[in-house]
């Protein structure tokens, strides 16, 4: 090139702009708009399929088979036999009724106590020892149910339990809390309330945090009574969180097994036999896997019904409010 001549780019029109190796093609494929979302969702999808979908389908299928681990025979397709057997089993109906009773009393007591305690702790920021009190209040919730069950079994013990010691100290005779069929159900229910009331306190505090301060102040200035404030402002704003808490507790209480297993094993007799315990005993004591799977499917449907009712009520109220 001559000195002083303008610079030119020595490139043919046909020359590639950049090299395209296999790695670059792969990364371009990953970046495609129709691929990337699935790629990002893949970990949770794989987890969901392996741990939720496959076991549920397996359970659903097994419910249509007569299959006992002790018989030594392979599973036999039996159609709706297991479901018919469950629906005709009065023992299951009694256990289910007892479970509903347990759920009702547990959730109502926990909700009322939780709301009362939550309201007490609300706006108590200046109270000395508030944090310690809250930590102590929440501690039952973080205990494993087996530890809590053992702990309370010892407290309830008729011979050396601290509760009976106090009862005797007051001049009354000992009560066999877990051995007496008349009180065992209430005793186990009490432990569930002790364990899970803090959860409802937590939900109540979360609900209260969503209440606008300005509305409460306006109500205070305008002399709204406390029950009107609770109904018109607090419950109105906090209802979604409270209902969510009630739903979660309902589903959880419906599945209660570990506490019963550790404290009474369903006894005395069948006084504390909840349906989850029935399921466990039929599956892992009688090894009747087909029948147990069918019962598990029914319990799953009941849990889904709880959730669907909650969502329906919530949307129905929202729709009604929007329409009015």
């Amino acid at each position: 090139m001559e000195p002083g001549a303008p610079a030119t780019i020595n490139q043919s029109r046909d020359a590639p702009v950049a090299s395209t190796g296999p790695w670059e093609g792969f990364t371009r494929f990953l970046g495609r708009r129709d691929v990337l979302p699935f790629l990002l969702l893949a970990p949770v999808l794989i987890f969901f399929i392996v741990w939720n979908l496959i076991p549920t389908l397996w359970l659903l299928g097994l419910g249509f088979y007569r299959f006992s681990l002790t018989s030594g025979r392979p599973p036999r397709f039996a159609g709706l036999y297991n479901y018919r057997s469950i629906l005709n089993d009065s023992g299951v109906w009694i256990d289910l009724s007892r479970t509903f009773l347990f759920v009702f009393f547990a959730v109502v007591t926990e909700t009322l106590l939780g709301m009362a305690l939550g309201l007490l702790f609300w706006n108590s920021h200046r109270l000395p020892g508030r944090r310690i009190a809250l930590t102590m209040l929440f501690s039952p919730m973080v205990l494993t149910p087996v530890a809590a069950g053992t702990f309370w079994r010892l407290i309830y013990d008729p011979t050396f339990g601290v509760l009976n010691s106090a009862i005797r100290g007051l001049g009354f005779s000992s009560v066999d809390f877990l051995g007496d069929g008349r009180v065992a159900f209430a005793a186990v229910l009490g432990v569930d309330v002790w364990m899970w009331t803090p959860f409802m306190v937590l939900m109540t505090l979360a609900a209260l945090a969503s209440v606008p301060k300005a509305e409460l102040e306006a109500a205070e200035i305008d002399r709204l009574a406390w029950h009107q404030r609770l109904r018109l402002i607090v419950l109105h704003h906090g209802k979604f969180i409270l209902m969510l808490g009630i739903l979660l507790r309902t589903i959880d209480a419906f599945k209660t097994m570990d506490l019963i297993y550790d404290m009474t094993y369903g006894g005395p007799g069948s006084a504390t036999q909840l349906v989850a315990m029935t399921l466990y005993r039929r599956a892992f004591e009688a090894f009747n896997m087909g029948w147990s799977s069918a019962l598990a499917v029914i319990l799953l449907l009941i849990s889904i019904a709880f959730t669907a009712t909650f969502i329906f009520v919530l949307h129905w109220r929202e729709r009604r409010e929007a329409e009015s």
Binding site: P212, A214, E215, E217, A218, L232, I233, H236, E321
Partner: peptide, 9 residues
Amino acid sequence: PQSFALFPH
């Protein structure tokens, strides 16, 4: 008040 503090329902 500065915020409206109207009851929404």
